[in-house]
């Protein structure tokens, strides 16, 4: 489709715009945009406040931005802080700073290297967390990988769940094909530093129910664990285990009752 040449806006200093359709939107100071924005590229190096929805190809936020509406983007990188009051629909999301999303998040690849908090549900092909994530709803992915801290109030449903625990991780329910929960063993400098400040926290996962085909759990506290092949590693405290094919229990684990189905 032949498109008419779109204009750019660049706000350096402080400025306002009413929104509209553009090629590139660049904010280097502080900007207030009153309407919806459609553009190819959105870049904010200062602070921006958008009252409407935004649809863009790429969004890069190095400062702080507040979106009051929905955000639809192919590639989004957040190096500063971002608040989204609506839903976020993206192909690729990379959060290296902090972000808060009040709606749902739907994506293909979500990478968190800082902290992210979502009030709705999250669904993506891949979720990779090295940092901290809080989700109030459910979390669905083909692959869910976490090296850090998470708190999920709903169900984590993923094909492969691979978790290395840091401090107290929490999920209400966990379900999937392959579930692996481990305590981090390599103590890097950064970890040691964190541990130094938070010395009272033990690395641990708490969940009500964990269900899957192949399970390996360490330092997990759960009411019920159900699976085909179940391996309960050290530090676990599980009230009830139901298994189909095999069950192995580490001597350092506590299991209330077990039943072969």
């Amino acid at each position: 489709m032949e498109r008419t040449q779109l204009k750019n806006i660049s706000i350096s200093g402080s400025g306002t715009s009413s929104g509209g359709e553009y090629d590139q939107v660049k904010v280097n100071g502080s900007a207030h945009i009153h309407g919806d924005l459609i553009c190819e590229q959105f870049k904010c190096n200062g602070s921006a406040h958008l009252e409407g929805n935004i649809t863009t190809d790429t969004a890069k936020i190095n400062g702080s931005t507040h979106f009051e509406g929905d955000v639809e983007v192919k590639e989004m990188t957040i190096n500063g802080s971002t608040d989204i009051d609506g839903n976020l629909l993206c192909d690729e999301l990379k959060v290296q700073g902090s972000s808060t999303i009040k709606g749902n998040v739907k994506g293909k690849e979500i990478i968190v290297r800082g902290s992210a908090s979502v009030n709705g549900n999250v669904s993506s092909d891949e979720i990779d967390v090295k940092g901290q994530v809080k989700i109030k709803g459910d979390c669905e992915a083909e692959s869910f990988e976490a090296r850090g801290n998470f708190k999920i109030d709903g169900l984590v449903n993923a094909g492969t769940i691979d978790v290395e625990l840091l401090r107290h991780c929490e999920a209400k329910e966990i379900g999937g094909e392959n579930i692996m929960v481990k305590k981090t063993r390599d103590a890097s400098g950064f970890k040691k530093l964190i541990k130094f400040f938070m010395s009272n926290h033990n690395d641990q996962l708490t969940a009500e129910v964990i269900e899957g085909d192949n399970l390996y759990l360490e330092h997990t506290h759960a009411e019920v664990v159900r699976g085909n092949t179940v391996e309960i590693g050290p530090g676990c405290d599980i009230k009830r285990v139901e298994y189909k094919t095999s069950l192995e229990i580490d001597p350092d684990a506590k299991v209330g009752s077990q039943e072969k189905i």
Partner: peptide, 9 residues
């Protein structure tokens, strides 16, 4: 369980 969760997803 894996199949059930996959289909739900």
């Amino acid at each position: 369980y894996g199949q059930l969760y996959r289909w739900k997803r």
